[in-house]
Design a protein around this nucleic acid. Structure first.
Lengths: 191, 191
DNA sequence: CACTCCATGTAACGCGTTACATGATTAA
DNA sequence: TTAATCATGTAACGCGTTACATGGAGTG
């Protein structure tokens, strides 16, 4: 009931009724930057939400089990969504494999470490460009949509966050340059 | 073998032999900002690493099953660590519950939304202060340690990242102010 | 007719946390 | 001696991904 996950389904169903497949597509293309769900979660979750009366199948379409089965949110579902929105979000610092490797980087190959940071930099620099385009596109496309300001906020979050990472990568690569000649010599000296 | 997790154990054991309990403490106080392990993982993992010959118990201490059991990294363990360090880190954007709620925030209570952002702001502002202190303390305490530059880099990552979040929170709160009088009116209009 | 995309669903697995059980050691 | 802390370990659970099985519908 209070899993914290799969609430995205209820949120998206406030737009209009959707099938499991449509939900997956909608999640990837709207909240994909900071949320994801897989089919393996969506379909069972829809059944569960139906059993709880939070969503309801749009229409009985008889026998065929492979036809599109759209669900609409119910009043109880809206209530549940509001209740979830009222709760403060849990802040949990995610694991960061890049940082873990960097923490022990002296044990490894300095050149590869630098490469990894550089690749990370490019990844996030590209992501920033994508988000900027997506911000422009949304402002244009949903000019009058009442949800637009909130959507823009989530995009801005990505932009600021990723820009910070790019800055950090640049700073770190500079720092590594001053280090690598010595560090490389040290590698293999252990034990 | 290539789980990606619990490699922190091998990294920390390059410092000196440690018991499961000591590893947990060391993880929390060194890489705790971006990595975590629970006892439920550490103890079984040590057994597994021992079976693979990547770590070895420091000394046989006979019968008592509750006495400290320290493990040292082996040459094979060092080799495995280096191999892992060579692989590019996987970048996977984490789920962000705050952003998911913000995305659907128009369905909820505008005042509470603002509170959530404000609390988030304080959380990260505090984290930045803590990290700054910890950076200073480390520079002082491990002045001559060859790993120091890498440790500082991981701290800098946190500082830049969290500062960006604080900036975003401020920007977002401002934006919400221009919105809330209208948004609040809209709530409950659905259906 | 074959291929691809749309579409629903299940089963298995991986990984991580939490809760629990147990006991040694140390300090009030 | 009682409580807190140190210390090891297991079992259960939650949650999420991946792989698989199935089949409809449209297109070349």
């Amino acid at each position: 009931m209070s899993t914290g996950t799969t609430r995205a389904i209820l949120g998206l169903l406030t737009w209009h009724p959707m099938s499991g497949y449509e939900l997956k597509m909608a999640i990837d293309s709207s909240v994909g930057n900071f949320w994801s769900e897989s089919f393996g979660q969506i379909y069972p979750e829809l059944r569960r939400l139906e059993a709880l009366g939070l969503v309801t199948p749009e229409a009985e379409l008889g026998s065929n089990p492979k036809s599109k089965r759209r669900y609409a949110i119910t009043d109880a579902g809206r209530e549940e969504l509001r209740h979830w929105l009222d709760q403060p979000p849990k802040i949990r610092p995610p694991r960061n494999e890049l940082l873990l490797k960097l923490f022990f980087a002296r044990q490894g190959n300095a050149a590869l470490t630098r490469d990894h940071i550089a690749e990370t930099r490019e990844h996030y620099a590209k992501a920033v460009r994508t988000l900027r385009h997506s911000e422009d596109a949304m402002r244009e496309r949903f000019k009058a949509h009442p949800d637009l300001p909130y959507w823009i906020m989530t995009i801005r979050h990505g932009i600021l966050q990723y820009e910070a990472i790019v800055t950090w990568c640049d700073e770190t690569i500079e720092q590594l340059k001053t280090l690598s000649p010595l560090a490389r010599k040290n590698v293999g000296d252990e034990q």
